[in-house]
């Protein structure tokens, strides 16, 4: 006897019922991008002090995160947001997905090129002093970067080149970069862990677009600290949040020393709170950039035009 239909009816009804269970008012949902790390003990400590039940939803890279929130505007998938950076916050504000008064800077990081010191010693080639040199023949086929369309790291560098050369002129530099055999990966992890020779992945490329803090964890690498892009990450309450008071508590906690102290070790970013502790080794191994550029551009308005032009060169 063939019984599947009966079981199917029962299973469907039961699952429909359980699927519609309501959520309690103590619940707080935080949405972040995939690279944010908040340890279990920190979450437990926040839950204990606030009396809230915190759920963290990772919703893709920074761009996908922003766009998903814009698409679900008014009935957001979370109460609070952490991890939106200065390249995307304009877009989020223009679309009215954030409660403006709640937007708070939490951390920052400098997007700089890193190189593998051992590789350059072994091949007796001078290390690059600025990324302007990356179009030179001696650095041919040595550099891996992230695609600015899919990665905020890549976008930060694109903004830096626009700031350095000006609208309409940066394309020449990028053409030269392409002609010099730059490799473009979809995301930072791919570039850093798979293709960079200085990381555990032992890839084929001794120069990678990463962060000024990355060498803190890789002994034989260094960063080019000149002409970096400073990326600042924000937290905010989402418009239409079901728990705005809870969201406000969480944002306050993200700025507190308890959380700020944990950030260098867990996410390789600098805490925005100047009182927060930074590991001593960072002073020599992971100093901040000596100069940065591109942050004052109207990134959210120009992004699509830039990416279109960049896509014409690399697409």
């Amino acid at each position: 006897m063939f019984r599947i239909p009966k079981i199917a009816y029962i299973a469907t009804v039961v699952l429909l019922l359980t699927g519609c269970a309501a959520k309690s008012s103590n619940d707080l949902v935080l949405v972040t991008h995939d690279s944010i790390v908040i340890s279990k003990s920190l979450i437990a400590s926040f839950e204990k002090s606030s009396g809230l039940k915190l759920t963290i939803v990772k919703a893709g890279d920074a761009g996908a995160l922003t766009n998903k929130l814009v698409l679900t505007k008014g009935d957001p998938i979370a109460d609070a947001l952490y991890g939106i950076d200065n390249t995307f916050i304009g877009k989020a504000e223009d679309n009215g997905i954030l409660a403006k008064s709640t937007v708070t800077a939490i951390d920052y990081a400098d997007i700089c090129f890193n190189y593998d010191k051992a590789w350059f010693e072994a091949h007796a080639i001078a290390t690059p002093k600025t990324w302007l040199e990356l179009t030179q023949p001696r650095y041919k086929n040595l550099t891996v970067i992230e695609n600015p369309t899919t990665s905020s790291t890549g976008l930060g560098f694109l903004a830096a080149t626009v700031a350095r050369f000006g609208e309409g002129k940066w394309q020449t530099f990028w053409s030269a970069l392409k002609a010099n055999g730059v490799k473009v990966d979809a995301g930072w992890e791919d570039a850093y862990y798979t293709d960079f020779s200085g990381s555990a992945g032992k890839g084929d490329y001794p120069i990678v677009l990463s962060y000024s803090s990355s060498p803190a964890d890789e002994a034989n690498t260094a960063a080019i600290l000149d002409g970096c892009f400073r990326q600042t990450e924000y937290a905010a309450t989402l418009t239409g949040s079901k728990n705005p008071t809870g969201a406000a508590k969480l944002i306050e906690w993200l700025g507190s020393l308890e959380f700020q102290n944990s950030m260098p070790a867990s996410m390789y970013v600098y805490p925005i709170n100047k009182k927060a502790a930074i590991p001593e080794s960072w002073a020599t191994k992971a100093p901040e950039a000596t100069s940065s550029l591109g942050e004052n551009l109207k990134i959210s308005q120009r992004r699509e035009a830039w990416l279109k032009q960049w896509g014409n060169l690399f697409g």
Binding site: D34, A186, G187, E189, D190, Y192, Y193, T194, S199, A200, G201
Partner: peptide, 9 residues
Amino acid sequence: YSLISRPGG
């Protein structure tokens, strides 16, 4: 997909 696009560790 998440694992393979972040192949570290």
